[in-house]
Design a protein around this nucleic acid. Structure first.
Length: 1035
RNA sequence: GGGCGAUUAGCUCAGUUGGUUAGAGCGCCACGUUGACAUCGUGGAGGUCACAGAUUCGAGUUCUGUAUCGCCCA
């Protein structure tokens, strides 16, 4: 036994254990199994970078669920994989290319760039999988998928083909968020707003042929003057008077329930509004009439006639009351353009420079064009005031450069019916979301039913499977279409085509375009289509398109595989809240569309992990914690337990982050300042270390500090506690003989343990079932430490060295440990497996009441089921009495500062029934409290030099003989403190009970309880007062 | 502007349907180490439950409002 070390050496053990699991194929799922299925798909981590603690939490929680279900006898599949993360990964690789080689993707070309990204992917996938494996996640590693691999690609093609055929995919010109740096559209979700200093420019457009009395100019204002080159109208409100009325009414309503400060402000606004009405309204009405009369304006600099239109987008209360309309470069103007049927003029090239429509400004970048346009307008005398103003500017999350609204051809998925299907699935609870409050966000987002733009002008991703040719006459189109029909007959179910209008040719005729979608990645079919003059769309699909298919694509869909039949739909999806809409909602609708069933029945949204300053963790801030660093320092089980106990209902957890000095292992709190430093000196040992920001050779040569959190210390200590308790148990299993036991005749401490096990098993099971991982972890921690170790094991010590009791005690304690290992295994797989292995050598057959053979792995052992027959609340109450007496004796000892090795005589007054139960336990007072019980029962009296503590709740008085130890001052201090506490409580209760309405209105049992409790306190107080008198006489 | 959430001990967090004196871990103080464990044990100090109202015999818990912080959407 001496070979079992006093610590669990995770660094040496974890790999061996993981290897043993792999060799035994413990986590491999068999679709042919007759066991009921339980499956989970991993939220595929981005190959953009390595995992941090957020992923650590996500995957720990999944593994807890998965391991438990596996132990419960389900054929369990946890499908692992990674996500190609289109724009994010390409952006990272492009940025590196720029930094390290000063090249753009265009210097490299499509194929070479994609090659580089694949290299990146291979590197990070390996890293990510390595991180997951070290955390102990029990994925089925034989089934690793990647969203860009051939299996997933086939699913993407099949889905696109299907939606194209159903006309749920269409092509349209839409205003998109254009990233001029990456030269791609980015989704709304990839845009963030930043407030910057800018200007608000006022300028004038001349009216063409104004009638007498009509204004010669219209004044408009904008923060982006260069967009005037793309203006196609100026709008004025169709009913400016009513619009002003409405605004005023709104202000007055606010005024009616405003406080004084707000009222003053509101009154000012109303005043200003009335002034504006006097000054501006007549002209706005006049302009409205001019618009109705078809008056036009001359757009300066490019000399283009543009319309004056009446549209509600113009706000009479703002600016001049008139607004310029640039439909191709502003989302609101785009809406106006659609309503008013205005031309849409794109003035930008894809790189953000002005195109030919910019006339004299063509080729300039936006900032340069802005200056030039302003100067030119000034020269023409058309420029008015220029105000300073803070401007909310959209930026691309990927390149951190400003977004330009840009009109581009895009493929869209029509969302009306698909979104509805995903809403219905949640509304009728085929998919349940936990915590339930997230339902609202999910439903609100889907209810907008905004069509989903899926084109991305990128090179990394699933190429859009559309081939097209445009500029055709109707006849040409018909001819080509029939050629394609013939081709389609040769390749059944592989080709779908559609004719759309394309544009207008020089003669003013509408031209046609033909779009062909090819179902499978088949070079012959593609070559045949290309031979007809069609070309493949250069764009790729939004990365979420392939992730939306994840639960069925990973199982082989569209092929009808055994895996799909056995494991779809999956059971539960555990993820973070920020992708509830982008990912979860889309998986639901795609699952319904493709397979006809929801992809999972439950979704659990877990908290986010923030750093000590309340900020989300990320590499770019320097506060990201790598799970590997935590594992190196504290072990995988500590990482997992530490994370699991954080996963409470309340969202988001702060986790203060520290640098670990590589020289002296001191933990140094991270601050905003030091987390940005490339290197620093350890405040403890003074030696320098580097951080992730190290750039210079000098910094890089220093040892690097890991970024960890001491929050895992508690968990590490718990692992060690379990290890050592197990070690003790096994040290005492020599000569173990499996024995059938009659539970009813076992001593109270054994029945107490069995009863507690029954309760804890039930609570833990329920908690995990309800995704209350924090609760499960806490209950197990408290049970293992405070009950199993602190009481059961301590009590077992004398029994294990007593031959007459040894065998029973061995059987029960082995069973207790066995059950604890099983319960803890899903959270702490390594240490439990290691102990299980050792335990098996001493007690290969174990269990209460009937020992049975156990298997080689706790991972594949059965998860405990609460044994109701073992639960005994009477026993638990009585044992609690014992615990309280122990605590009372310890308290007296501590207050008297009595050395642990000294044994104290004690006398315990209790009821006759308690006496019966406590009599056999008297030896344990010695073991747990160093007390020798000299008398026990109703007739017990105090000692001559007595210290007394009453336990009114259980009707017990504890007396300790202080003859040899008495420290009168200390005892007096203890008693006086107690007296103070009691007096306070008594006053409180007397007040409560003298309150007439409490006595008459509160339920009788509550009042009765208060009365009894007061009486108990008063008796106690009297006793204390007497003890004090007695002691004072001895002074 | 709309929605969601948070605010409890120095720090990080629990607190089930309203009912004794609001809990844990870390940190702090005191004492303790020849045996399972100092990654430990025993005891202790430490809280106006953000603020203001309301409901109630009784509010950390229910309702309304305010403040501060965070996230999502526009």
């Amino acid at each position: 036994m001496s070979e079992i070390p006093t610590r669990f050496e995770h660094a040496e053990e974890a790999d061996k254990i993981a290897q043993a699991w792999t060799d035994a194929k413990c986590s491999h799922a068999d679709p042919e199994s007759s066991k009921p299925p339980f499956s989970v798909v991993i939220p595929p981590p981005n190959v953009t970078g390595a995992l941090h603690l957020g992923h650590g939490l996500n995957n720990t929680l999944q593994d807890i669920v998965v391991r438990r279900k596996r132990m419960q006898g389900f054929e369990t599949l946890w499908m692992p994989g990674t996500d190609h993360a289109g724009i994010a990964t390409q952006a990272v690789v492009e940025r590196r290319l720029k930094e390290q080689e000063n090249k753009t993707r265009h210097d490299l070309g499509r194929e070479a760039l994609v090659d580089r990204i694949w290299q990146w992917k291979d590197q990070y996938e390996e890293r990510i999988i390595g991180q997951l494996k070290r955390m102990g996640t029990s994925c089925d590693w034989e089934r690793l998928r990647f969203t860009l691999d051939p299996i997933c690609a086939a699913a993407v093609r099949a889905t696109f083909f299907d939606l194209f055929g159903k006309r749920r995919i269409y092509r349209g010109k839409r205003l998109v968020n254009w990233d001029t740096f990456l030269q791609t559209a980015v989704s709304d979700d990839e845009v963030f707003n930043q407030t910057k200093k800018g200007h608000f420019y006022h300028f004038r457009y001349p009216v063409i042929d104004p009638k007498p009395g009509e204004p010669e100019f219209v004044t408009i204002a904008t923060t982006r003057p260069e967009t005037m080159l793309g203006d196609t109208a100026v709008a004025v409100h169709p009913d400016p008077a009513a619009a002003l009325d409405a605004v005023e009414a709104g202000l007055r309503e606010k005024l009616s329930d405003a406080n004084e400060k707000e009222a003053a402000d509101l009154n000012k606004q109303i005043e200003a509004l009335q002034k504006r009405r006097e000054e501006r309204l007549p002209e706005l009405i006049q302009l409205r009439d001019m618009a109705a009369d078809g008056r036009k304006l001359m757009l300066p600099l490019v000399d283009r006639e543009i319309d004056l239109v009446a549209d509600e987008w113009a706000k009479p209360e703002m600016g001049s009351g008139c607004v310029k309309i640039t439909p191709a470069h502003d989302p609101n103007d785009y809406e106006v353009g659609i309503r008013q049927d205005l031309p849409m003029i794109n003035i930008l090239n894809s790189d953000g420079t002005l195109n030919g429509e910019g006339g004299p400004f063509a080729g300039l970048t936006i900032p340069k064009a802005r200056k030039a346009v302003v100067a030119a307008l000034e020269e023409l005398g058309l420029m008015g005031d220029i105000e300073d103003r803070e401007i909310e500017l959209p930026h691309s999350d990927r390149s951190k450069t400003p977004i330009e609204p840009y009109l581009a051809d895009q493929w869209f998925v029509a969302m009306d019916e698909l979104a509805q299907s995903a809403m219905d699935a949640v509304s009728d609870e085929r998919v349940q979301i936990f915590p339930a409050r997230y339902r609202k966000g999910y439903l609100d987002w889907l209810s907008e039913k905004r069509d989903w733009p899926v084109s991305r002008q990128l090179w990394w991703g699933h190429r859009i499977p559309i081939w097209s040719v445009g500029g055709l006459s109707q006849e040409q189109a018909n001819e080509l279409s029939s050629d394609l029909e013939k081709l389609a007959e040769r390749h059944p179910d592989q080709i779908a085509q559609r004719i759309d209008s394309d544009g207008v040719d020089t003669a003013g005729e509408t031209t046609k375009a033909i779009f062909v979608c090819i179902r499978s990645e088949d070079e012959t079919v593609e070559a045949d289509v290309e031979a007809l003059g069609l070309q493949q769309d250069p764009d790729v699909l939004d990365t979420w398109f392939s992730s939306a298919l994840w639960p069925h694509s990973t199982l082989g869909w569209p092929a009808q595989t055994p895996e799909l039949a056995k494991f779809y739909p999956t059971a539960t999806l555990i993820t973070s809240r920020d992708i509830l809409t982008l990912w979860v909602a889309r998986m639901v609708l795609m699952g319904l569309n493709n397979v006809g069933e929801v992809p999972f029945s439950e979704v659990f949204i877990h908290p986010k992990i923030l750093d000590g300053l309340g900020e989300t963790m990320s590499k770019s801030k320097g506060n990201g914690v790598d799970p590997i660093d935590v594992i190196d320092k504290f072990g995988p089980d500590a990482l997992r337990f530490g994370l699991a106990r954080l996963a409470t209902e309340t969202q988001d957890v702060r986790m203060p982050v520290q640098y670990e000095c590589p020289s002296c292992e001191k933990l140094i709190d991270q601050t905003k300042k030091n987390r940005a430093l490339p290197s620093m000196d350890c405040p403890a040992c003074g030696k320098p270390f580097s951080t992730q920001w190290a750039e210079t050779e000098e910094d890089k040569s220093l040892p690097k500090a890991a970024v960890v959190s001491e929050r895992f210390e508690t968990a590490r200590n718990f692992v060690n506690k379990l290890w050592n308790a197990s070690r003790f148990v096994m040290m005492n299993l020599d000569g173990f003989e499996p024995t059938s036991l009659d539970v009813a005749s076992l001593p109270i401490e054994d029945r107490w343990l069995l009863s507690r096990l029954s309760t804890v098993t039930q609570t833990v099971g329920d908690a995990i079932e309800r995704y209350q991982f924090g609760e499960a972890a806490r209950v197990l921690y408290d049970f293992a430490w405070d009950e199993f170790c602190s009481f059961y094991v301590e009590i077992a010590k004398p029994r294990l060295s007593d031959d007459s009791q040894r065998q029973i005690a061995q059987n029960v304690i082995a069973h207790g440990l066995d059950q604890l290992l099983r319960l803890l295994h899903p959270i702490m797989p390594f240490v439990t497996e290691s102990v299980w292995n050792h335990l098996g050598q001493f007690a290969p057959k174990r269990g209460v009441p009937e020992p049975t053979e156990v298997g080689p792995f706790v991972m594949t052992a059965s998860f405990p089921v609460a044994d109701e027959s073992h639960h005994d609340s009477q026993i638990e109450r009585q044992f609690s009495e014992f615990q309280q007496i122990v605590a009372a004796i310890r308290q007296i000892r501590a207050s008297q500062n009595i050395a642990p090795k000294e044994t104290l005589p004690a006398a315990i007054r209790c009821s006759a029934s308690s006496q019966e139960l406590l009599q056999p336990m008297t030896a344990y007072f010695e073991a747990l409290a160093g007390a020798e019980v000299q008398s026990l029962g109703p007739e017990t009296t105090a000692f001559e030099t007595d210290a007394h503590l009453a336990l009114p709740d259980v009707d017990v008085d504890v007396h300790v003989d202080l003859e040899k130890f008495i420290d009168v001052e200390a005892e007096l201090a203890r008693l006086e403190k107690l007296q103070g506490q009691l007096t306070g409580q008594i006053t409180g209760k007397q007040n409560k009970l003298s309150n007439e309405s409490f006595v008459s209105r509160a339920p009788a049992d509550i009042v009765q309880k208060e009365r009894e409790s007061l009486a108990g306190l008063q008796t106690q107080l009297e006793a204390v007062a007497q003890d004090i008198l007695k002691l004072q006489s001895k002074k």
